[in-house]
Simulated assay, not measured.
Amino acid sequence: MILGIGLVIGFRDGVALANAYGAVVIWVMIITTCLTTLVMLLVWDTHVLLILMFFVPYILIEGVFMTSLLTKIPQGGWVPFAISAFFLTVMFSWLYGRSRKNAYEADRKMSLGELNQMLARNTVYRAPGTCFFYTNLVNGIPPIIRHYIQHTSSVHETMVIVTFRTLPVKKVLPEERFNVGKLGSDGVYRCLVQFGYNDSQSIAVAGDEFVASVLAKLKEQTETTEEIERLDSAAEKGVVFAIGRTILKTNPNSGWFVRFIIDYLYRFQQKNCRPELSIHEVPPGTTLQVGMLYEI
C-alpha cells in the first residue's frame, strides 16, 4: 500500500503509472513469444509451419497492443524503456569487455615450446612447494603465466594451472569434476575443474580437500614412481594459491566509444564486482595475487 502510494506520487498521477505498467506488460508478452519461438525452433525441433502458426497470430495481436501504447510513451511509458536502457548498457559493457579480454588472451597465450624454453633457463629458480595458479583461460596457457615467470624469475617445483568451468549440464559426476593433465615442462600441470549449473561451486574446491583431490588425480595419470614422490614432496613443503587478476586499458589509437566502454564502464564494474574465486574459499594466508595490464 505504501509502495503503491509512493509510486503514484513519483509519477505525479496514476495515469502515468498505468502507462508504465502497460508498456512493461506488452513488451514482456512480445519477448516471451519470441523466446518461445526460439525454443520451438532450436530445442524442440518443431516443424516450421507449426512455429509460424504459433508465432504469426500472437505477434500480430501483441503488435496491435504495442502500437496502441506508442502514444503513451511520453506520458509515463518511457520509464521502463529508460530502466531497460540502463541495464542494457551495463550488460553490453561487461560483455564487450570480457570479449576483448578473451580475444587478447587467445592471441597472446603461451605455447608449450615457449614455456619449456623459459623454464629451461638457468635464471629461473624452482621454488620449493606447490603452486595452484588460478586463471580464466580454458584452452592454452594464459599470458599472465609468461608475465609471472618473466618478472619473478621463479616457478614452484610443482605448478598447477587451475581453471573453473560451468558446463551446460545439471550436474557433473564427482569422478569427472577434475580434468587434469601434464603440460610439456617438468613439474607443470593443468587442472580443469568442471561444474554443472546446478552444482554448488564451493564443494571440493578449497583448502586441503581441493589439494588432495587434484594431487590424487595427477597421481592416477603419472607413470613413474619418481614423479609421484616428487608431487608428494612438493606438497609437504607447502602450498601457495596464486590468483591471476587482469586489468584492461585501451591504447592511444582506440576510438572514444571503446575508451568509454573499457576505461570507464567495464573498469568500474570490474573494480566493484565480487571476485569469482571468493566462493571457492581460497585460504587468504597462502594466497598471492598476480596482476597484469592488458592494453587492447
Rank of each mutant, 00 (worst) to 15 (best):
residue 73 I to K: 03
residue 50 L to W: 09
residue 153 S to T: 11
residue 180 V to G: 05
residue 212 A to N: 14
residue 132 F to P: 00
residue 135 T to D: 11
residue 293 L to K: 14
residue 283 P to L: 06
residue 48 V to D: 02
residue 47 H to I: 03
residue 4 G to F: 13
residue 37 T to M: 12
residue 192 L to R: 03
residue 209 E to G: 12
residue 279 I to P: 00
residue 238 G to C: 07
residue 211 V to D: 08
residue 86 F to E: 01
residue 244 G to S: 15
residue 133 F to W: 10
residue 135 T to A: 14
residue 55 F to P: 02
residue 145 I to W: 03
residue 72 K to E: 04
residue 78 W to F: 15
residue 8 V to C: 10
residue 23 A to V: 15
residue 135 T to Q: 06
residue 142 P to E: 12
residue 53 M to W: 09
residue 79 V to W: 06
residue 75 Q to M: 13
residue 229 E to I: 00
residue 114 E to D: 12
residue 44 W to V: 11
residue 269 Q to D: 00
residue 119 L to N: 10
residue 93 S to K: 08
residue 254 S to R: 05
residue 7 L to Q: 04
residue 68 S to Y: 08
residue 111 S to A: 04
residue 294 Y to E: 12
residue 291 G to V: 07
residue 133 F to Q: 08
residue 73 I to M: 08
residue 117 Q to S: 15
residue 48 V to K: 06
residue 45 D to K: 15
residue 28 V to E: 06
residue 6 G to E: 04
residue 66 M to Y: 13
residue 201 Q to D: 05
residue 246 T to V: 14
residue 18 A to K: 09
residue 265 L to D: 00
residue 195 F to M: 03
residue 271 K to N: 09
residue 218 L to N: 01
residue 210 F to L: 10
residue 96 Y to H: 07
residue 239 V to P: 01
residue 254 S to L: 03
residue 29 M to C: 12
residue 228 I to F: 00
residue 113 G to F: 03
residue 169 V to T: 09
residue 148 Y to F: 14
residue 50 L to Q: 08
residue 7 L to T: 02
residue 89 T to H: 00
residue 143 P to F: 05
residue 62 E to V: 05
residue 67 T to V: 15
residue 192 L to I: 12
residue 202 S to K: 08
residue 145 I to H: 02
residue 194 Q to G: 00
residue 17 L to I: 02
residue 154 S to L: 02
residue 55 F to H: 03
residue 178 F to W: 07
residue 140 G to Q: 00
residue 231 L to W: 01
residue 45 D to G: 04
residue 164 F to C: 06
residue 64 V to W: 10
residue 124 V to S: 09
residue 15 V to R: 14
residue 19 N to M: 01
residue 55 F to G: 06
residue 34 C to Q: 09
residue 181 G to Q: 07
residue 131 C to T: 07
residue 36 T to D: 04
residue 139 N to H: 11
residue 224 T to P: 00
residue 19 N to P: 00
residue 22 G to T: 06
residue 209 E to Y: 07
residue 12 R to K: 14
residue 80 P to K: 01
residue 136 N to H: 08
residue 276 E to T: 11
